[in-house]
Design a binder for these strands. Structure first.
Lengths: 152, 152
DNA sequence: GCCGGATGGTTGATCAATCAATAATTGACG
DNA sequence: CGTCAATTATTGATTGATCAACCATCCGGC
């Protein structure tokens, strides 16, 4: 077996590959399901969740970008679209005129409530065989991974 | 606490959010690191790994698309670019003239060997605090997730 | 053998994200 | 105070992925 093939069996590379593959596959599948059933793309859902969870239902654009792992430029236009759809609005910040808040609207909260129901149902199918204990373990591992030290 | 906020705390929704967030963040960070150090974008790396692992170093386009979670159209152009870079070639299938194989080249194997080293090193930083036992548990959970039953 | 439906891959059009450059504002320091 | 580096969001240009339409090929039933 040539070196390259042996090296690709590096355990960490495999583990990381598994992580990305599982995430990509599930996001695709559940994302299209969610959008088909509610009209809300999965990214929109993520935005709504973050905003709804936040103080006063709003977050600065940059903070939102960080939370959903997008560029600030990307979020600018994403919020444009969601604004056009009536699910969020922009709000000026009183104390720092550079920052612009994205704020969830009532329509946004309503849509979110609907979408959460659908999404949770779909997720129950996916996590069918998982015990509470296993889910807790998974949560813990993922949290550690999320905050893992990154290479220089 | 309003209903929407309570509902967004649905445990499975959170778990799924964690999974996607961890994957997105790490892929972005490690992907830019890999590309900066080797010139190979992370998708290319994934392609090279799959091809190198496969029988005769080649896979039908569609099979490759499935493995890296892309559309067949997406893979067509991805392979175009990697072909232009000399890392893969297309090979006709002898028994079915519809199928086209993507095959890793020697240059591709060389680049992969280099990239695996870099990537593995970076991954060691990320998985620093994880024991072998924990990694095994994670692997197992991710595998089950990858093959999880999907909603209709 | 041949026809009709399925399968595999490519292509054109479109959409959305990134990157780099820009504009506006803030805060710190001389 | 006034200047300058740093921060925040937006915009234009480009890249890459999707979707749908398409072409070629294969295979099962007649």
């Amino acid at each position: 077996m040539p070196d390259a093939a042996a090296a690709t069996d590096d355990a960490l590379v495999s583990t990381f590959g598994r992580l990305l593959e599982a995430a990509a596959r599930l996001e695709r599948r559940l994302g299209t399901a969610l959008e088909a059933e509610t009209g809300v793309p999965h990214v929109w859902f993520e935005v709504l969740v973050r905003l709804a969870r936040s103080e006063r239902g709003m977050l600065p654009m940059g903070e939102l970008a960080g939370q959903i792992t997008l560029t600030s430029g990307g979020v600018t236009r994403l919020v444009d679209r969601m604004d056009a759809a009536g699910l969020v609005t922009r709000q000026a910040c009183a104390t720092d005129r550079r920052v612009s808040y994205a704020a969830i609207t009532d329509a946004g909260r309503a849509k979110l409530a609907e979408a959460v129901g659908v999404h949770a149902t779909n997720l129950r199918t996916v996590f069918d065989g998982f015990s509470d204990r296993e889910l807790a373990v998974l949560d813990r591992l993922l949290d550690r991974l999320r905050g893992a030290p990154l290479p220089a």
